[in-house]
């Protein structure tokens, strides 16, 4: 285990024994003089939700951008299923089964659901779109996730935020996805819709997908993630099962950047 040894003893019986889906090892990234990440480690196991925490500028976005191929590290390596993967651009990441869902609902509002689902990888023959096949596949993909939408011919712009995020998720997991990065997926949504997104994510978890969940909503993180990894100033603070801490302890670690001593209250439980 490459988890920080801080709580290794308590942690190990809760830790999944399986091999990690993805390991980011000793990742460093600097932009000119600014050191955004220093020797950061991260691993995600199949069927877990890992909460990636830290306040703005802690390095979360830089780290996931590197995993998603939108940025590259100066140092360090990424291993997928134990094999080193060279991710230079978003298409490399996708080829390794890494998909990203962005906060700002990354859909083209002027296109319908099948067009969005298959954007950039349309089913075609000789350059001609196979609209029927894409529509049928979209219907299948969305029904598998219990996503209901009114019509496959309407522009997604006319749909609710929740429906659109559902389509984003449907798209992200449709193409043999193993690792799903969710960058504040509920930030733009109302409460009911956030709940729906979390239910969907639970469904994906059951399918063995490893999920990296970025959120500023501490309540959501505490109740929804299996493990947390906190970054501060571009360095790992702690990586451990979420329930090893109280919500207050997590908040204090995000702010201070120092791991807390195990609280007495928690040990009594």
């Amino acid at each position: 285990m490459r988890v920080r040894p801080l709580f290794a003893n308590q942690g190990e019986d809760i830790m999944p024994k399986t091999e990690p889906l993805v390991e980011m090892r000793h990742i460093s990234r600097n932009f000119g003089g600014l050191q955004a990440l220093t020797n950061v480690n991260l691993e995600v196991y199949p069927g877990e939700v890992l909460g990636l925490l830290g306040h703005n500028g802690a390095g979360k976005s830089t780290l996931i951008k590197i995993l998603a191929g939108a940025d590259t590290a100066n140092e360090g390596a990424i291993f997928i299923n134990g094999h080193e993967a060279h991710i230079r651009n978003p298409n490399d990441a996708r080829a390794h089964g890494i998909e990203t869902i962005y906060q700002e609902l990354a859909l083209c509002g002027n296109l319908d659901a099948p067009a969005n689902l298959y954007m950039g990888r349309e089913i075609s023959k000789w350059g001609f779109l196979d609209k029927k096949a894409m529509k049928a596949e979209t219907a299948k993909a969305l029904s598998r996730l219990n996503i209901r939408i009114k019509s496959f011919d309407t522009e997604v712009e006319s749909m609710s935020g929740g429906q659109r995020q559902a389509i984003s998720i449907g798209r992200a997991v449709h193409f043999d996805t193993k690792i799903l990065i969710m960058d504040e997926p509920t930030a733009a949504l109302g409460m009911e819709e956030s709940k729906m997104v979390m239910e969907l994510t639970t469904e994906l978890k059951k399918q063995g997908i490893g999920i990296i969940w970025i959120s500023h909503d501490i309540y959501e993180v505490y109740n929804f993630t299996d493990r947390i990894s906190i970054l501060h100033g571009g360095e790992n603070v702690v990586t451990a099962p979420t329930k090893d801490f109280t919500e207050d302890e997590i908040v204090s670690m995000i702010i201070s950047g120092r791991p807390v001593e195990r609280s007495a209250a928690k040990q009594e439980v």
Partner: peptide, 11 residues
């Protein structure tokens, strides 16, 4: 419709 999204989706 959205050039940034198109790019992110690999177009």
């Amino acid at each position: 419709g959205n050039e940034r999204v198109a790019r992110l989706q690999g177009i």
